[in-house]
């Protein structure tokens, strides 16, 4: 089921090989490979419970993967989360985990922790070095607050920020550790379209500053607008990986989000769609031309007709992809394609 990772130019920022995470008898993540190249934005999608966040936790050391290895810029990452951050991998959390009773500025200053060295003695003696370090930290933190547009709220408690700004503050806090790779776990969850767009611009700006980004998201428009590459995780395994077009075209992704039609339902679906067979057939053929046909799955022959049946309508649906589950269903079923070469 695993696919070879995309070859990337230059040394990979992040390279995960065969990451497997088992909780007792449950395998949450099974043998996942993932590479993030320098300056790349990689998306990680998959239905709820697919193991995306677990995979994130394996990358950042919050979980120790049962098998597999994760390396950052060629060196193997530590199993200790704080050393992972120190190495240059920062993250945000799916359910916002700010230091609620600290101010906005303090939150970002905590993010500076790994990049400063002043210990207790230095704090007690308050030498010139301490003052200088504090000043520099504060300067950098303020830069980041300007960058994320939160500078005017520096003295608010984090808990009192509106939701969208809390998300931004999480990103600012993560950026404070000057990471080479930023892991974003559903950065636009619960946001309105404007906020989502702003976040999108923010992520692009972060990339432009040279930080690679790996992002989990359910908002397909956000993912496909933003990401250079998208990996799909289903039931703990990587289903496919490729550019937005490739992933959108993969009918197994549709199946993963919608479920595979079975028995009566599938049959009736086929029959109802038969009227359009002619159109759909041609559309399917053109789609096939985009990528080599999948040879792996026997079930594909059945799915192929199903996907082809709906291709005609989804040509238009594709253009108006949006973050809701409903549109997500329609998005990837443009055509049937195989795994990435």
């Amino acid at each position: 089921m695993t696919t070879p990772t995309m070859p990337t130019a230059g040394a990979a920022v992040l390279e995960a090989r065969g990451v497997t995470m088992r909780f007792g008898g449950l395998t949450a993540v099974r043998d996942v490979d993932l590479t993030v190249g320098p300056g790349e934005i990689v998306g990680l999608i998959g239905p709820n419970g697919a193991g995306k966040t677990t995979f994130f936790n394996c990358l950042t050391g919050l979980y120790v993967p049962t098998e597999g290895s994760v390396s950052y810029q060629g060196t193997r990452l530590s199993r200790k989360p704080h050393l992972v951050t120190q190495a240059g991998v920062a993250r945000t959390f799916q359910n916002i985990r700010l230091f609620a009773n600290m101010t906005v500025l303090e939150n970002v200053l905590v993010g500076r922790h790994t990049r400063t060295k002043e210990g207790l003695w230095s704090a007690l003696l308050r030498g010139p070095g301490f003052k200088k370090a504090e000043r520099t930290s504060e300067q950098r933190a303020m830069e980041l607050l300007e960058f994320t547009g939160l500078a005017h709220k520096r003295d608010h408690l984090a808990r009192n920020l509106p939701y969208g700004e809390q998300r931004k503050l999480e990103i600012a806090r993560a950026l404070a550790s000057d990471p080479g790779l930023l892991l974003l776990d559903e950065p636009t969850a619960g946001m309105n379209p404007q906020e989502t767009r702003a976040t999108q611009d923010l992520v692009l700006a972060i990339r432009d500053q040279g930080t690679a980004v790996l992002v989990i998201e359910h908002d397909m428009r956000f993912i496909f607008n933003l990401c250079d590459r998208v990996a799909v995780l289903v039931q703990g395994q990587k289903l496919t990986e490729g550019t937005a077009e490739v992933v959108q075209a993969d009918e197994r992704v549709v199946a993963a989000y919608l479920g595979t039609p079975v028995g009566e339902e599938a049959g009736s679906g086929d029959r109802a769609a038969e009227a359009k067979t002619g159109d759909a057939g041609t559309a399917g053929a053109t789609a096939d031309a985009e990528g080599p046909a999948d040879t792996a799955d026997a079930a594909d022959t059945e799915d192929a007709t199903d996907a082809a049946d709906r291709t005609a309508e989804s040509e238009t649906a594709d253009t108006e992809t949006a973050g809701t589950g409903e549109t997500t269903e329609e998005t990837p079923d443009t055509a049937q394609t195989g795994d990435t070469p």
Partner: peptide
């Protein structure tokens, strides 16, 4: 000692641990 420790990188890290240990660790705090 209390004042200086509290208003420093160390003090902030302590408060961060008190507020949310997982997040604090993810920020690189040992």
């Amino acid at each position: 000692v209390f004042r200086r420790a509290a208003a420093s990188r160390i003090g902030r890290a302590w408060i961060a641990i008190r507020e949310d240990e997982t997040a604090a660790v993810a920020m690189g705090i040992n």
